[in-house]
Design a protein around this nucleic acid. Structure first.
Length: 362
DNA sequence: CGATATTAGTGAGCCACATAGAGGG
DNA sequence: ATCCCTCTATGTGGCTCACTAATAT
């Protein structure tokens, strides 16, 4: 059941820009959630649980963007696990993206399904009717240290979002790229540094991070600790929205977990997983094609967004780079300069070397 | 703790000239 | 309709300077 919905959303929204998520190599029906390195197989949660209940091979989550390849890194700013291709694609788009802090993804050895479920369990309301997460949130808001929200797994992120929505009714815009679309007023400790908050300074090591080996690889605890240690200031989110995109994706009725397919299982779609309340179910049902289209449009827009200077005419760039300057300003080219310039580098040759469109002028 | 000085960061503007594109013949 | 020519606006990178913010005294 959960897998079916999972798959549905893979194809509809998060499934790699219209491309269906990679199917499970075993059942061929559900979308793969993890990749087993030992077996070289893509597995859905159910098959993974069945196969790896005994043989606990090292597996990794699927890339959250393309869902076609195993994740290779986790991006702190995007709060996502990405494959090598998507990582290169996304984080080479602009200087801001390049500054995103990424860490090698660490394999999981427990059943992915159990991890998902344990995440949900940790989100179950306690006696006070609030989840552990909300407590962590509260602690954070009371002066706690940002404990690395970016380290959440897809499932835990979703759980967090849905729980948060259930609790406060506020939107949780995890889908948004916070550093590009919002003005966070205080979401991160070092926000005063402006865009430098892209790579937040960690004054204290997040509890869910464990140094695994001498290769500076972090063990991202995909199980439970991330949920309880995670903290986020939803208030700052809801109050600091400034982008026109904001009104596009989260509609206040549905979950904002489109990019976190694994989490759907715990969002009320898996009968085996306890979910606090029915609002998430209702919210899921309210996910319409319109919203999916909006989300898709947003993600495409975000993916293609570039903040660096766009060179429209490479030929002009080539000329500008070869032109003589005086204190940075373009200077008149003397005959000597012209000769030197031609001998030194011909813009046409430069463009030809760089495979630009050449407009011969010499 | 407030005032002043210093440092750091940011963005607009300038320059010459090849070229894209519009317009006319 | 097509081609050719002329003219104009555009875009290009490195540097300076003015301004603001942050930090130090």
């Amino acid at each position: 059941m959960g897998i079916e919905l999972h798959n549905h959303h893979h194809k509809g929204v998060s499934g790699g820009w219209g491309v269906a998520a990679k199917p499970c190599d075993t059942c061929k029906a559900a979308a793969s959630a993890v990749f087993c390195r030992v077996d070289s197989a893509f597995l859905c949660l159910n098959c993974d649980a069945r196969i790896h209940c005994v043989n606990k091979h090292a597996r990794v989550w699927m890339c959250e963007v393309c869902e076609q390849a195993p994740a290779a890194v986790t991006c702190k700013a995007d709060a996502a696990a990405l494959c090598v291709t998507c990582d290169n694609d996304i984080h080479s788009a602009n200087p801001l993206a390049r500054r995103h802090e990424r860490n090698p993804v660490e394999p999981l050895f427990d059943s992915a399904d159990s991890i998902v479920k344990s995440s949900a369990l940790n989100l179950a309301p306690n006696e006070n009717g609030s989840s552990e997460f909300s407590g962590a949130c509260q602690q954070h808001e009371e002066g706690g240290v940002d404990s690395g929200a970016w380290l959440m797994t897809p499932s835990s992120k979703l759980s967090l979002e849905s729980t948060n929505e259930m609790k406060s009714g506020e939107l949780f815009f995890s889908e948004m790229d916070p550093f590009l679309d919002f003005e966070y007023t205080n979401s991160y400790p070092n926000h005063s540094a402006g865009m430098d908050s892209v790579v937040p300074v960690q004054t204290s090591k997040p509890p869910q991070i464990q140094v695994m080996n001498n290769e500076n690889c972090f063990d991202i605890d995909f199980c439970r600790s991330k949920l309880t240690s995670f903290s986020y200031q939803t208030q700052s989110l809801s109050q600091s929205v400034s982008s026109s995109d904001v009104g596009v994706v989260p509609d206040g009725k549905s979950m904002s977990d489109i990019s976190y397919p694994f989490g759907r299982n715990i969002a009320g779609t898996d009968p085996n997983v306890p979910v606090s309340g029915t609002s998430t179910n209702q919210a899921t049902q309210l996910c319409g094609l319109d919203r999916e289209a909006r989300v898709l449009r947003y993600r495409e827009k975000r993916k293609n967004r570039k903040f660096e200077k766009t060179i429209r005419y490479h030929s002009r760039k080539a000329y500008a780079e070869t032109r003589p300057r005086i204190k940075g300003r373009f200077a008149k080219r003397t005959e000597v300069d012209s000769e030197v310039g031609r001998l030194y580098v011909s813009p046409a040759a430069f463009m030809a070397d760089n495979q630009y469109g050449v407009v011969p002028t010499f």
